[in-house]
């Protein structure tokens, strides 16, 4: 008797799909406060990737230029070895020269 009552109660509970369970799990999440659309998020991601690429490129170009300036500094030291050593190299003129 008790078994049949329990069975009847269980049958009364509607079946819940996995998708619904997942959606319920995602409810009340901190990310729910984000009201932005997927497309807008995609654009933000692309902008970030482009920004990283630009800054990386700037960093690499700058380091290459610094290497060239260092090399030029060595050359100027050799060139003036008989007299005073060159202590400072004008960065822009070296870049322009190279």
């Amino acid at each position: 008797m008790a078994d049949s009552k329990e069975r009847a109660e269980n049958q009364a509970i509607p079946a819940v799909s996995d998708e619904t369970v997942e959606k319920r799990r995602l409810r009340d999440n901190m990310y729910d406060m984000i009201t932005i659309s997927v497309r807008a998020m995609d654009r933000i991601i692309i902008v970030l990737i482009v920004l990283i690429a630009i800054i990386l490129a700037i960093g690499i170009i700058e380091s290459k230029q610094n290497d060239l300036i260092k090399d030029a500094g060595q050359l100027s030291k050799i060139a003036t070895a008989d007299g005073k050593l060159a202590t400072r190299v004008d960065r822009d003129s070296v870049i322009e020269y190279l």
Partner: peptide, 25 residues
Amino acid sequence: LQYIIKGLIIILAVSIDVRKYLSKK
């Protein structure tokens, strides 16, 4: 510049995480 790059990578990582979440919703 290294600091800026690292910061952007972290923001990118979180953005991708949010994007994954939004597509699941």
